[in-house]
Simulated scan of single mutants.
Amino acid sequence: MKALHTFFHSLSLGRSLIAASAALVSIAASASDFPLRADDINLNYRYTTDTHWSGGAQEYALDIIARRHIGSGKWDHLKTNGADNKVNSNHIVYGAKIRAMDSGTVVGCWRNAPENTPGSNHAKVAEGYIGYAGNHLWVLQDDGNYALYAHAQPGSIPTDLCPHNATYLPAKEEGAVWTMAGRVWGGARITKGQVLGLVGNNGNSSGPHLHVHVQTGDNLPIAMKFDRGQTTPFTNETASVNATWTLLKGKSIPAGEMMVWAPHSVAYWTVNNIPDERMQAWFNHFADSGVMPNVYACTDNGQIYNTGWVPSTGAWQAYHGMSLTSFNKKSDDLAKLGYTRYGWWYCGSVYTGIWRK
């Protein structure tokens, strides 16, 4: 099994045969950003979500953690085998950057509540001196709905977003998600995609995770729809490393346990040694993230791909797994549509190509 290398991460993958693919990704303009990024964790890892509970303002809430594949389709939430589950920093998701799903204004927050030990809450939670959301931001979005980002690491929410620096609430507010002490008037503006803090474990939380939900001012639940990212079923902590992924493209994450391949940040990326049976999913992942291929090389007669990605500009198409006949026909057809061949690569009988306008 060959290793996949990037500038920042590494991962191990397997192989098979795949058909050609094109970069034609449409996105719903009104959808939100997923609040975490793929490049904040090792590229071999994925996020998983679970529906918070049924009914009430949090009916469509998501509790998000991160996992790594440990074999036989099983995934674990700890960084290493045998790591102490009671140590927050041993959890993969701990410290991941929380990003704003939509633009809006901060209307409530807390930033310095202490962390829980996984499996139990800090005593001050039951006493009512730490709100259920722990360190959090309430954001009045520009669409008029309210978004909650809960359980951030102590001190990780910037002071210019949250003016409340005390450790505990000044008076008991038992069971509160909205706390009176945490209200903010004339709060800071945030923009979609902005980093808001780091994933932690505090408030009414049993372990490191990000809780997000959106509700109306009348406490009615709003289903979150995300512009980018892919999902696949995750049942009994099991999902194949060669799973079939479905692009969100403005849809909600299905209820229940799901695995999420979050979008990458728009930047310059190099990912090599991708086995052919996973190339389509990787292609969809990067194209969906807003980057386009700059290098699309192959080796081992098309069984392995080496890729480079840059921020998308203009119209482009890219294909892999082509025969020479298919490659020549594709070049002719795209030339008639005004595309210029940017680059092409071959390995034995298999060709790849990138075309741009």
Results as ranks from 00 to 15, higher is better:
residue 9 H to D: 06
residue 13 L to A: 08
residue 24 L to A: 09
residue 27 I to T: 14
residue 28 A to H: 13
residue 40 D to Y: 02
residue 45 Y to D: 08
residue 49 T to A: 11
residue 56 G to F: 10
residue 56 G to N: 11
residue 57 A to R: 15
residue 60 Y to V: 10
residue 71 G to T: 09
residue 77 H to T: 12
residue 81 N to T: 14
residue 85 N to S: 14
residue 86 K to H: 13
residue 97 K to T: 13
residue 97 K to E: 12
residue 99 R to K: 14
residue 100 A to Q: 02
residue 102 D to W: 05
residue 106 V to E: 04
residue 111 R to M: 07
residue 112 N to C: 09
residue 116 N to K: 03
residue 116 N to S: 01
residue 120 S to D: 05
residue 121 N to G: 02
residue 123 A to E: 12
residue 136 H to G: 03
residue 159 T to D: 13
residue 160 D to N: 15
residue 169 L to M: 13
residue 171 A to N: 09
residue 173 E to T: 09
residue 175 G to I: 08
residue 179 T to H: 08
residue 195 V to E: 15
residue 201 N to F: 08
residue 205 S to P: 03
residue 210 L to Y: 02
residue 215 Q to D: 07
residue 216 T to L: 06
residue 230 Q to R: 13
residue 231 T to K: 00
residue 231 T to H: 10
residue 233 P to W: 07
residue 233 P to R: 08
residue 254 P to F: 03
residue 255 A to Y: 00
residue 263 P to K: 05
residue 266 V to L: 08
residue 275 P to T: 03
residue 281 A to Y: 05
residue 289 S to D: 12
residue 300 D to Y: 13
residue 314 G to C: 12
residue 318 A to C: 12
residue 327 F to V: 00
residue 327 F to G: 00
residue 329 K to V: 04
residue 333 D to P: 06
residue 335 A to V: 03
residue 339 Y to S: 02
residue 341 R to L: 15
residue 353 G to V: 10
residue 353 G to F: 03
residue 356 R to F: 05
